[in-house]
């Protein structure tokens, strides 16, 4: 019996002491990279033909300047790696329009500008993607943005009426940005 107990205890000891683990490298954790790409709508501007016709021809029918801290918030500014702004413009009015989007920094300095020339209806929707970061514009334009100014200039008359019912100008802006979480 003593021999048997001894053998079993030896076996158990062997199991534990000879148990092994392949080499692990926990320092790899430092190399973990977590960089999701986040997408969101950013700006939507709409005006209808009736409103445009209330304003003299060849003048700005929309001119908005507003605070915009989304890009300068630390959670974005400190982590963004690259990305793109995606524009879509839909015009069903009878007007030739020019849309200007300006990103303003401290002291209302213009950091970046996008201009869109839009033909009157019938016209296909305009789509434009502007890259920032590697291979694109500087991300600093966005990170330092404190305000956005959007201007819509009517380059036509203020009497014509579209053949499409409820004609509008819809200016859409969304963003997709890769950010470093870790």
């Amino acid at each position: 019996m003593k021999k048997l107990v001894g053998r079993i205890l030896s076996l158990v000891c062997c199991v534990f002491f000879l148990s092994c683990s392949e080499e692990q490298n926990f320092d790899q954790f430092d190399d973990v990279s977590l960089t999701p790409t986040l997408a969101s709508g950013i700006l939507y501007v709409e005006t209808n033909e009736e409103t445009i016709n209330l304003i003299p021809a060849m003048s700005d029918v929309v001119r908005d300047e507003f605070e915009f801290d989304a890009f300068s918030e630390g959670v974005f500014a400190d982590r963004v790696l690259e990305g793109a702004l995606i524009y879509e413009v839909e015009n069903t009015t009878s007007k030739q329009l020019e849309i200007t989007l300006e990103f303003l920094g401290a002291g209302d300095i213009v950091l970046d500008t996008e201009v869109f020339q839009i033909d009157p209806e019938p016209t296909a929707d305009l789509q434009r993607t502007v890259a920032y970061g590697s291979g694109g514009k500087s991300l600093e334009y966005l990170i330092n943005t404190e305000k956005i100014r959007v201007t819509v200039n009517n380059q036509s008359d203020n009497t014509s009426v579209s053949t499409i019912a409820n004609a509008i100008l819809a200016f859409k802006l969304a963003g997709e940005f890769r950010v470093r979480v870790k």
């Binding site: 709508g41 950013i42 709409e46 209808n48 409103t51 929309v62 300047e65 605070e67 915009f68």
Partner: peptide, 22 residues
């Protein structure tokens, strides 16, 4: 649901320089 800052000119009644993002 958030679609971003929305400015609909024909419906505007508020401050033009509002802090839409906030």
């Amino acid at each position: 649901t958030v679609e971003g800052v929305e400015i609909i000119e024909q419906n505007r009644t508020g401050n033009i320089n509002a802090d839409y993002w906030q």
